[in-house]
Simulated assay, not measured.
Amino acid sequence: MTIIDKYILKRYLATFVVMLLMFIPIGIIIDVSEKINKMIENKVPFVEIATYYYNFTIYFANSLFPIFLFLSIIWFTSKLANNTEIIAILSSGISFTRFLRPYIIGASIISVFVLLMGFFVVPAASEGFNNFRYTYLKTGGKEAMRGDNTDVYRQISDNEFIYVNSFNTLSKTAFNFSLEKFNKEKLEYKITASRIKWNPKDKTYTMYDYTKRTVGEFGDKIEKAPQKDARFRFDLEDLTPVVYIAETLSLNKLIKFIDKEKKRGSSNINVYLVVLYKKFSVPVSAFILTIIAVSVSSMKRRGGMGINLAIGIALAFAFVFFDKIFGVLAEKSSIPPMLAVWLPNVAFGVLAIYLLRNAKR
């Protein structure tokens, strides 16, 4: 690595870190100003507030990482161009492709860092961030943490199915419960109860107005009881999963969770797949945004850095906008999640190639 490579790489990483240190406190101040009233009303302990803003910092930086990266490259590359340093470098016989090398090295370092953060650190921060919001800040409190609590129908194994008409998260009670077990497409038995309550201490369920009908060859056997305790193979989360559950899981746990939900025929599977694919697509965007930013800002313009920054901000927000839009479309429509998640990278990758060719000229 030459002196020029080290110089550019150092500026690349240093400017990115400074950009994070500049904008994260601003984000915290804005968030505090919006939520301070509810925190005071709910008498939130200071320790929990401090933990929340630790998680908020990680969550905020991960969400807006493409904008921070893009603006930092635009900023310091425009300064190089205005000081005619880029002209001097290219005039010495170095090609534009060779000039890009320290930028690609910098993008590789940041991509690996973001990838590892997304696998292990961000899920824990996301869980703490969302738990605090739904506990103290959201209307409805912990009730709002879960998705649709009505008409939950799930497959809990290859031959067992459960159904509940509704579920109350505060009392941990489900109503109009039924469990059906099949043997080679033939009903083996069916359990019904007017309500079923989760007992966290011994991890059992209490069923009320319990009825079990066992299908026999020469007649059915019926068992009834006003109340009955039992252990089942499904968890409380199977009745109403937390809406942001996928964001809180590390990579291995997320993959296992998605496999389990696919077998159960979960209606939220697209939401979980979007979270999984974004763990890989976001780090790749570092390379695309780096090439676009260098291509846009390496030319010395009459308007100075202001023009480059204006173009950079517009492109950065356009990328984040399309990334969010296609993510929502994948969750709410029939668009394949992988296509929706990677489409912004593909579109901006084509733009990066076009701008790079123009910059080389």
Rank of each mutant, 00 (worst) to 15 (best):
Tyr205Pro: 11
Ile87Phe: 12
Lys203Leu: 14
Ile8Trp: 02
Val341Gly: 00
Lys142Thr: 14
Asp148Pro: 10
Ala318Cys: 10
Asp158Leu: 08
Thr214His: 04
Glu180Met: 08
Ile104Pro: 11
Phe96Tyr: 11
Leu80Gln: 02
Thr290Pro: 12
Tyr53Cys: 07
Lys221Ala: 15
Thr211Cys: 09
Asn168Gln: 04
Ile196Ser: 05
Glu217Arg: 12
Val17Phe: 06
Thr214Met: 08
Leu115Pro: 10
Leu21Lys: 00
Ala61Asp: 11
Met39Asp: 10
Asn358Ala: 04
Glu217Lys: 11
Tyr354Arg: 14
Trp198Leu: 04
Asn176Ala: 11
Thr2Leu: 12
Gly306Met: 10
Tyr277His: 03
Asp202Phe: 12
Gly128Ile: 03
Ala193Leu: 02
Gly140Ile: 12
Ile49Met: 11
Tyr103Lys: 03
Ser63Gly: 15
Ala347Arg: 06
Gly106Met: 03
Glu143Gly: 11
Asp229His: 00
Asn345Tyr: 00
Thr139Tyr: 07
Val44Ser: 04
Gly27Thr: 02
Lys10Ala: 02
Gly140Glu: 05
Leu116Val: 15
Lys221Asn: 14
Ala340Ile: 00
Ser295Cys: 13
Phe317Lys: 05
Val346Gly: 10
Tyr53Gly: 01
Ser266Ile: 05
Gly93His: 08
Pro25Asn: 05
Glu261Gln: 14
Ile28Trp: 00
Tyr205Trp: 15
Ile291Tyr: 04
Ile222Cys: 02
Arg301Gly: 07
Thr15Val: 01
Thr84Ala: 10
Lys35Asn: 15
Met22Ile: 14
Val215Ala: 05
Lys279Tyr: 03
Gly306Gln: 12
Met22Trp: 02
Asp209Arg: 09
Ala144Gln: 14
Ala314Gln: 09
Trp75Ile: 07
Pro102Gln: 09
Pro200Val: 06
Asn183Lys: 14
Ser267Tyr: 06
Gly118Ala: 06
Arg302Tyr: 12
Ile104Glu: 11
